[in-house]
Design a protein around this nucleic acid. Structure first.
Lengths: 216, 216
DNA sequence: GTCTATATGAAGATAGAC
DNA sequence: GTCTATCTTCATATAGAC
């Protein structure tokens, strides 16, 4: 007799439950077409599941959408927390942090998530707040920590706008032109080198503004 | 006998044509609900017009949407071209340019337009490219001119990233945190002073990075 | 050009068998 | 829990009178 453990691990599953299957399918559909243009039929078909299976696990389209976005936000949170940052040189730290952040937001999935969250922000304000907390806020917070240490060590001088302000400026500089560019040019894709160059530009600018001589 | 000139001025009209009425109504509806969630019924009702009037002037929903976004982009272009910039002091120039840009993009209509353009960018790539050209590109171009002059006068040193790069950094710094923040917090509204502070922060940071001493 | 009325299809959600 | 079949509502778009 074959022992088959089903629904053992709800998160990452070898034999995913139907609920998980539906969620994954819904994720693809919603991130591709947005909330309103997505239909439960499309999701159902994408998941190879019947209509009532879908409705057995999620009461309605809104709830499914909410579940999808929250799951994506959780993934994003993990992704951003896991950025390895070798401590020591501030420039290196900012490079690593900035690069990981930029890669995350200009990646197709990152852009798709941003698109749908921004679009539905008036209808699902709580989702966009969630997204903001786990995304930009998290990166800014991490930058803030490193900047505070660097300021204490005399590597930077952020007295003009404060540590928090400088951290916000940093994440803003990283998003800068590229994020907007790829939002508006959905067919274009950034090369590795291009991302690298943007990060360099942002870090350089930041350190020109706040770095102290010799530490660049 | 009353002489009534109808359809004389297609753009801004005291007695707007039906086509104009429909366009205005569609503009409100699309910017509020996005493309897919908007229905021709809503537009029809908003315009106090019948269904066939709508279809007499626009072949279908897509064409109406395209017309709406293009009209908005044209308005935006005018708005950004009309920013008065007193030449002379670079800091003043950047303040004026930055402030007008930031006000435009965090205003409710600015956010609404951005939302819908970003959301529909995969489906209407030509519209998002249009938006990019008349919006961010235009501001960057204007900043570029002023920066080139300032560089020639020795007010700034942009050798590290070039005039174009510096201009992009500037518009990025202006968008920075606030644009993202208000995209993600649709109920919040910026105060005049808040906008002022953000502009100051951006300009200060920019001049710290590229300004030459004494000129700040 | 403009209206009322309607054709036609598809959406979200449910019923009932297994 | 899962499927097939269906109900109801509402969407886009059109027909035909004025």
């Amino acid at each position: 007799m074959e022992t088959r453990i089903e629904n053992a691990a709800p998160e990452p599953c070898a034999t995913p439950s139907k609920a998980e299957t539906v969620l994954q399918a819904a994720s693809r559909v919603f991130l591709t077409h947005g909330f309103s243009a997505s239909t439960t039929d499309m999701i159902q078909r994408e998941a190879n599941v019947s209509k009532s299976t879908l409705y057995a696990h999620y009461p309605n389209k809104e709830a499914l959408f909410t579940a999808v976005i929250e799951a994506r936000c959780a993934l994003l949170a993990v992704q951003l927390d896991d950025i390895p940052v070798a401590p020591g040189n501030l420039r290196q730290t900012l490079r690593a942090l900035g690069r990981a952040y930029l890669e995350a937001i200009v990646a197709p999935e990152g852009l798709a998530l941003f698109r749908v969250v921004v679009a539905e922000s008036p209808r699902f304000p709580q989702l966009s707040r969630s997204f903001y907390r786990v995304g930009p806020s998290r990166v800014t917070a991490r930058a803030s920590e490193h900047l505070a240490r660097a300021a204490a060590a005399g590597e930077v001088d952020v007295t003009s706008i404060g540590v928090e302000g400088a951290a916000q400026v940093f994440t803003g500089l990283i998003r800068g032109e590229p994020h907007l560019h790829y939002l508006m040019h959905p067919d274009a894709r950034p090369s590795e080198e291009q991302v690298e160059r943007w990060v360099e530009q942002a870090v350089t600018t930041f350190l020109l503004a706040f770095g102290r001589a010799g530490k660049g």
